[in-house]
Design a protein around this nucleic acid. Structure first.
Length: 449
DNA sequence: TCTGGGGTCCTAGGACCC
DNA sequence: TCTGGGGTCCTAGGACCC
């Protein structure tokens, strides 16, 4: 906690929905819900008009549909969101070199790092309002809420209070009093599980949390959690703002429209996800030592299996082979019904350390699986500049990237290459929503970024 | 037609080394 | 022979955040 209110938090209001309303005037003033695909989707963002019906983030889409049947239900257009987000972050970067984006729609700014010395309430108020105006102009009309305080905790709390389209400043010295009546859930890091444990101690509010003895908190939550929780209960928060945070993991997962019960159905999906992850790894110039496979069962239990290699890798072959072998280790779970499968990598280095025997082990493993996939088709794509942009395992699956269009040649293991064909891509940033393309030889396929 | 996808951080136990 | 502690790495699971 600082002596001045020198930390600013900016949060765009109902961001995804607001972008849709901005770009499509007929949606303005109407409930708009951005949500997941398939019957198993959840709400990502609800416009304020939709929130009046009780719709909120993380709610299953089918429930949102029941509460607000007349809303416009839309898939996310992440390309558009990324563009708007970049515009906002550029505005914030002008305010201070120390700026920490937390997601597409929010960021912290360290006002002290810009050389500013005037932290009077009037001066901060002008700064906050100017900033909100600049965001509106830079994004062609998106509104942002801004909170300013002496710590990340206070700034975030203030922007929450400011919503929608407002500004709140927490004057230094008033922090502890301000949070006293709030639920413990207002403390960052206190979720449903921790709140439930605190409830067992009869603690609902931050003021009650302060009354708890150190002993009972430690017993219920462990020494570490007890320590930071107590500090935050007194508004003591010294978390810094770092403009460059390194990536720790990269992953890709999806929930299926129906549960799978056969390993043979999951193998092509595992391979596709592994290749996707490997591609993102190479795009980032990184190599990973640990590969993780995640399975969510029909009963919602989550099982992960990971393997750390001797060297760091970035190739499709190795990551795919390891992911497939982790799947093989977990195959006993598959008959229980798999609703989600994910592949992730972590333990990054910036240099390859691929051990030779690992590569050869990977190759033989991969060929086993390839031969086990019936009717394997393969697609080759060429984008602008002739770079190979996709490949596939298993019938119907296509992925790759390109700007504006993608050129595809269809071939199978048993037939000569077919004619070269071109498909348009409306939005190259569309991932993770697949673009469907049709091919008379293979039936429908899906094209992802 | 119940409950997403991308992450980060923490805990706890076991292996191993000094 | 019995008993040791600290540190690091790895794995699996869980909580939390946006």
């Amino acid at each position: 906690m600082r002596a001045e209110a020198s930390i600013l938090h900016l949060d765009l209001d109902a961001f995804f929905a607001a972008v849709e309303q901005r770009d499509k005037p007929s949606l303005r003033g109407k409930p708009v819900i951005i949500g997941g695909v398939s019957g198993r989707g959840v709400v990502s963002t609800a416009s304020y008009e939709a929130r009046k019906f009780g719709v909120h983030s993380a709610m299953p889409t089918h429930e949102a549909r029941r509460l607000c049947p007349n809303a416009a239900f839309l898939h996310g257009r992440f390309g558009a969101y990324r563009i708007a987000s970049r515009q906002v972050m550029e505005v914030l970067a002008q305010v201070s070199p120390q700026m920490e984006p937390m997601s597409l729609d929010e960021a912290y700014v360290d006002l002290a790092a810009s050389g500013r010395t005037d932290f009077s309430l009037e001066s901060l108020r002008k700064l906050g309002e100017d900033l909100r105006q600049q965001v509106r102009e830079a994004t062609n009309g998106l509104t942002a809420s801004v909170g300013i305080g002496s710590s990340k905790f206070m700034a975030k709390l203030a922007s929450e209070e400011a919503k929608p389209d407002g500004l709140v400043i927490v004057p230094p010295g008033t922090e502890a009093d301000r949070i006293s009546p709030l639920s413990v859930r207002a403390i960052p890091g206190v979720g449903p599980a921790t709140a439930e444990r605190l409830l067992r101690l009869g603690i609902h509010t931050v003021a009650e949390l302060r009354q708890a003895t150190d002993n009972e908190l430690r017993r219920e939550l462990g020494p570490n959690t007890a320590a930071w929780l107590t500090a935050l209960a007194y508004a003591q928060d010294d978390r810094g703002i770092s403009s460059s945070r390194e990536v720790k993991s990269i992953s890709m997962e999806d929930t299926f429209a129906v549960d799978y019960t056969h390993v043979s159905e999951l193998e092509p999906i595992t391979a596709r996800d592994a290749v996707w992850v490997a591609k993102r790894l190479r795009k980032s110039g990184l190599f990973a030592r640990t590969i993780t496979l995640k399975l969510k069962l029909a009963d919602f239990t989550i099982h992960t299996r990971s393997r750390t290699l001797l060297g760091a890798v970035d190739s499709d072959e190795t990551i795919t082979a390891v992911a497939l072998s982790l799947l093989d280790e977990q195959k006993h779970l598959v008959p229980r019904g798999i609703r989600l499968l994910g592949v992730g990598v972590s333990g990054f280095t910036t240099e390859a350390q691929e051990a030779l025997f690992e590569i050869s082990a990977a190759r033989s493993d991969l060929s086993r699986v390839e031969s086990s996939i019936p009717d394997r088709h393969s697609w080759h794509g060429y984008g602008p500049g002739d770079d190979v942009i996709h490949d596939t395992y298993g019938p119907g699956w296509v992925w790759g990237s390109g700007l504006g269009q993608v050129t595809v040649r269809f071939e199978t293991a048993n037939t000569p290459p077919g004619p070269i064909r071109t498909f348009p891509i409306d939005d190259p940033d569309l991932h993770p929503n697949p673009i469907q393309i049709a091919d008379e030889a293979s039936g429908p396929g899906w094209l992802e970024e």
